[in-house]
């Protein structure tokens, strides 16, 4: 099966190892991984700021870059949710509308793709740590992912998952929100990290590096004893 990966802009720039680990897992699952090296961003940042027209130009580029693909897989529910749910609003009553309808059916968040398309949950990963799992808002409410990452983590040897309180509550990232209203965003991170610390977990794991970038930056600044890992990093461990 040929899988075209989308590497979100911030993963491309800040966390390339997450994308490499996703590739590693997809290849182990038997996929032929394709990467169009022209790709950049899905267009979400400007859209969420209200700059729909600027966003639209980048969405057009995304449509072009992923035109001839079978499946598109990305390690970010946030980007995938945006493409699935908002492209059709941006391109309503336009010539790209039909293309968007095709696109949104073939793009998948990484864990969703593994569990629901490939129907594979066990990659012989080993990760001997206590972790807690953070449900990203985009995974929960944009992509309707809840059990998929947990099913995958359940097969990781040595991994103990302890659920935290208020696990479905937003971590407070929210893109530009985190820099426009940094104190509110910081207070939300504080509660998220406190809930995680109460589980005694060493790691917070999630489908979304954007949440983790925020949570991790907050925990590090306060030197709190918890680290963050993308689920692709966990699934690629130990083999």
């Amino acid at each position: 099966m040929k899988v075209s990966i989308f590497v979100p802009c911030f993963i491309d720039q800040l966390y390339p190892q997450v994308a490499f680990n996703m590739v590693k897992v997809l290849q182990k699952a038997g996929c032929e991984v394709d990467y169009n090296a022209n790709q950049t961003c899905c267009g979400q940042p400007a859209f969420n700021a209200g700059f729909y027209e600027d966003s639209k130009d980048i969405c057009r580029k995304f449509l072009k870059d992923f035109k001839d693909t079978e499946y598109i897989v990305a390690p970010s529910a946030s980007c995938v949710g945006f493409v699935k749910n908002n492209y059709s609003k941006l391109f309503e009553n336009s010539s790209e509308g039909a293309e968007v309808n095709v696109l949104k059916e073939k793009i998948y968040e990484f864990t969703d793709f593994l569990v629901n398309v490939l129907k594979q949950e066990d990659f012989n990963a080993v990760f001997e740590n206590k972790i807690t799992y953070h449900d990203s808002c985009a995974a929960l409410r944009e992509c309707h992912i809840k059990k998929e990452p947990r099913a995958l983590l359940d097969h990781v040897k040595g991994l103990e998952l302890v659920e935290m309180n208020d696990v479905e509550t937003c971590c407070g990232f929210g893109g530009s929100f985190a820099v426009k209203f940094e104190d509110i965003s910081g207070a939300m991170a504080d509660q998220k990290v406190n809930n995680a610390l109460q589980t005694d977990a060493k790691y917070i794991v999630s489908t979304d590096m954007s949440c983790l970038m925020h949570i991790d930056g907050y925990a590090k600044k306060r030197q709190l004893p918890v680290k963050c890992l993308h689920i692709a990093d966990v699934l690629a461990s130990g083999w």
Binding site: D12, Q13, Y15, Q39, Y218
Partner: peptide
């Protein structure tokens, strides 16, 4: 203010 600074990778994934 509330985070350690962002750390860009030396090279992009691309």
């Amino acid at each position: 203010k509330h985070h350690t600074p962002l750390e860009f990778a030396p090279k992009t994934f691309n």
